[in-house]
Design a protein around this nucleic acid. Structure first.
Length: 280
DNA sequence: GAAATTTGACCGAC
DNA sequence: GTCGGTCAAATTTC
């Protein structure tokens, strides 16, 4: 795997996150700038993750990390199982139960005890499946070795439109009073910390995200997420799940908290896989 | 009452 | 026949 492109993406993500942090510290009016930066950050990390997951392949375009050939056929008459288009490991860190949101709205549709696994596997599909026909699904399973680690497998590509919702949110200017409320909210939300580390897995490299959080007013924070980042559109319960850490909650991505006091720590990047040339 | 979750049953792949 | 993935009715939550 080529080291340089990966380093570039990770470095760019860090720099953009720092810029975003600066904007957040200044004023809420920089929402559009923040949105742009978040988009860039997401793009960088998606590229980086693609490189990690497909060390021998060319990195796909950021917004196209899924191959169309990998799209799920979720008709009742199941066809041959496609390969997972993406797989990540998410550490819940101090949060005992659930990992964080990945920016999409998921709805749980099943849970199964898996042979040889000490924890059941939860099945999620896109909330917009019925409305927009989005066939994306994901599976969440707690790791056997480390129960604080959730293994999240994505399948299929999101065809639903979630970004437009963010754009709409950006268009509306909140009344002054609400603005102040949101500001207070954000101040509290700043207690979030985000830490990213990498560790080698049995079959490759998986990103591992750790989170630490302090209790906040979840409802307000949910609104805040929706208003400031369309890509972070979540189901009604997502953020509450993150904070309350309910067992079967939808997982949340590092980027879900990324607009809140992002604190990337790449000192922990540690590649030690035979095929990898990277040691940071 | 609507939306989300739970859970047993069903179906296809192996 | 077993296992994993999905469906859908029942239940819970908001």
């Amino acid at each position: 795997m080529e080291k340089r492109p990966l380093m570039n993406e990770l470095t760019q993500g860090r720099d953009l996150a720092n810029q975003l942090k600066g904007h957040l510290d200044q004023t809420l009016s920089a929402a559009q700038t923040c949105e742009f930066l978040v988009e860039r950050i997401l793009s960088s990390y998606e590229k980086a993750l693609s490189m990690l997951n497909n060390p021998f392949d060319e990195a796909p375009a950021a917004a196209d990390s899924y191959s169309p050939n990998h799209c799920t056929t979720s008709t009742k008459k199941r066809k041959t199982m496609d390969k997972w288009s993406e797989q990540v490991k998410v550490c819940s860190g101090n949060m005992v139960e659930a990992p964080l949101n990945d920016g999409y709205s998921w709805r749980k549709y099943g849970q199964k005890d898996i042979l040889g696994a000490s924890h059941p596997r939860a099945y999620y599909r896109c909330t917009h499946r019925n409305v927009q026909g989005c066939l994306a699904t994901k599976q969440v399973q707690r790791s056997d070795e480390d129960s604080s680690v959730f293994e999240v497998s994505y399948r299929g590509r999101h065809t639903c439109i979630q970004a437009t919702q963010l754009s709409k949110a950006l268009d509306k200017k909140p009344p002054k009073k609400e603005e102040e409320e949101e500001k207070k909210c954000m101040d509290r939300a700043f207690s979030f910390n985000f830490k990213a580390t990498y560790k080698g897995g049995e079959e490759g490299l998986f990103p591992c995200f750790s989170f630490a959080s302090t209790p906040i007013e979840t409802e307000k924070l949910e609104n805040l997420f929706c208003d400031f980042n369309p890509n972070l559109q979540t189901s009604d319960s997502d953020l509450s799940d993150v904070i309350n850490s309910t067992p079967n909650s939808v997982t949340n991505s590092p980027f879900g908290g990324c607009d809140l006091n992002l604190d990337l720590d790449f000192d922990h990047v540690d590649f030690d896989v035979a095929d990898s040339e990277m040691f940071v």
